[in-house]
Write a protein that binds this DNA or RNA. Structure first.
Lengths: 160, 160
DNA sequence: TTAATAATGAAACACTGTTGCATTTATTCC
DNA sequence: GGAATAAATGCAACAGTGTTTCATTATTAA
């Protein structure tokens, strides 16, 4: 099954999807990227859910629009364009999340990973502090990953 | 080929290895772990080189002592015993490094990753700062990954 | 509408990590 | 030192993750 962004059927689909968030196509246009079904769907999914998603979550949401190979290429394209970012937690999980507008130019990310439910929360407002690095080293980017229990899982298991 | 830690051949091997670092067997003993060829070799390698190593680097150093399945199990055992820690950089690379004595009880790690040569430097002395996390969240561990250019690669490519 | 360019998806592959099970090894206790 | 026991090993087979090539199809610009 092929997916035609310019077909009538897809126009209706797109119109329905973007009733709440109208800027997906604009995002792609502003980055000089072609508007393809997978790109639109992936960005929309991340907008709609508002959280970071794994590939398998994205897969099940996308249905037969999903193709593994295209997915990896779409992800790479959107990463390069700084539309999304990837969060890798050890070798446990990989998640994808939309960049906030302040992410776009900053290279700092703070994430919270819940060891119980494996949810990832982007902590955009937390400022990344300065770390002392060896002489001659040049810092370009800083990622912080805080692990622990999220609000829900902390309630179920209050004491440590 | 099997590797007998208690064989004469291995005794000589071990004696040679530990002429500079005499505490590998003690480390295992203190954790209640059996002293097997792979464990001793892996810890020794990390001690000898003093840097973090990838699986393939460990493989080529270990020669025919290396076995993939045993490697993963050895790594898991040493991780559980807090003898080593794993550093995952996006989906670029996974490295293993010895814990410093101050790592053993602290759950904070600061690492520097060079985007050019992919070397990882443990910054043990850098204090991990406090980050504000949402109410109800419980922080247990904090990992910081600073990306940029290391001293060597920074010289070759001074300006940004 | 058409031409040019880019994205897609199929096949095939390489790498990463795991599980079950029979065999081998390290340790403990004598 | 030697046997009993509990653990580690390594083989086979598998599941998951990510990439490359190439012919086909879709998007965009003119």
């Amino acid at each position: 099954m092929k997916h035609f962004v310019n077909s009538d059927k897809f126009d209706i689909f797109v119109a329905f999807i973007f009733c709440r968030e109208m800027n997906v196509v604009d995002i792609l246009k502003s980055k000089g990227l072609k508007k393809t079904a997978q790109r639109i769907m992936l960005i929309h999914l991340l907008q709609k859910t508002g959280v970071s998603l794994t590939e398998s979550e994205i897969k099940s949401e996308m249905g037969d629009l999903y193709d593994r190979i295209t997915f990896y290429r779409t992800v790479q394209t959107l990463l390069d364009a700084r539309i999304i970012h990837r969060i890798t937690v050890d070798n446990i999980t990989v998640k994808y999340a939309l960049n906030h507008s302040d992410h776009e130019h900053s290279e700092n990310h703070v994430h919270f990973f819940c060891r119980q439910c494996h949810s990832v929360t982007c902590l955009a407002d937390s400022a990344v502090r300065e770390y002392r690095i060896p002489k001659g080293f040049q810092s370009e980017e800083c990622e912080v990953l805080i692990k622990g229990l999220c609000g829900r899982c902390g309630k179920k298991q209050p004491a440590l």
